[in-house]
Simulated assay, not measured.
Amino acid sequence: MHLRRNNFLKYTFLFLIGGFAYGGVEILYRGFSHISMMVAGGISFILIGLLNEIYSWKMALISQMVLSAGIITAVEFLVGLVVNVWLKLNVWDYSNLPYNIMGQVCLIYTNVWFFLSLPAILLDDYLRYFLLKEEKPRYKIF
Rank of each mutant, 00 (worst) to 15 (best):
S44W: 05
V79N: 03
G70S: 09
N111D: 12
L87S: 07
G24I: 08
G42L: 01
L14W: 04
I43V: 14
G19W: 01
L51R: 11
V82F: 13
G19R: 01
G23C: 07
V91H: 08
I27P: 02
L61N: 05
I43W: 00
P98F: 14
L81P: 02
S44H: 02
I46C: 03
G103I: 09
L107V: 00
V66D: 01
M65C: 08
L107P: 03
G23R: 01
W57C: 08
A21Q: 09
L89V: 06
M38I: 11
I17N: 07
L51M: 14
L81V: 15
E76R: 03
N84T: 05
I46K: 00
V66H: 02
Y11C: 07
V83E: 06
F115W: 14
Y109V: 07
S36N: 12
F77D: 04
G70A: 06
I46L: 05
I46E: 01
G19A: 03
M65W: 05
L116Y: 13
L61A: 12
L9K: 13
I108L: 15
K58C: 11
L67E: 06
I62T: 12
G42D: 02
V75W: 00
V91I: 09
W86G: 00
T73L: 11
W113N: 06
V91W: 11
S63D: 15
K58H: 13
G49W: 03
V25E: 05
L97E: 15
I62L: 14
Y99D: 09
L51P: 08
F15L: 06
E53K: 15
G80E: 00
Y99T: 10
F77M: 09
V39H: 00
S95K: 12
A60S: 14
Y94R: 04
S56R: 15
V105C: 04
I101R: 09
G42C: 00
L47R: 08
V66Y: 04
I108T: 11
Y29Q: 09
K10E: 07
P98S: 11
G103V: 05
S44V: 08
P98D: 12
F15W: 07
I72P: 02
T110E: 10
I35T: 15
I71R: 01
L89K: 15
L16A: 13
A40K: 01
N84I: 05
V75D: 03
P98H: 09
G18V: 11
T73K: 07
F32A: 14
V83D: 01
I72E: 00
F8I: 12
N84D: 09
Y22L: 08
N84H: 04
V85Y: 10
F20W: 09
V105I: 15
F114L: 10
C106E: 13
S33T: 15
W113R: 03
I35A: 13
V91L: 05
L51N: 07
K10I: 10
G80R: 00
G18H: 01
Y55Q: 11
Y94Q: 08
R30I: 04
G70K: 05
E53D: 15
M65N: 02
W57M: 10
G41H: 00
Q104C: 04
L14K: 04
A21L: 15
C106I: 14
L61I: 14
F8A: 14
V83H: 05
M38N: 03
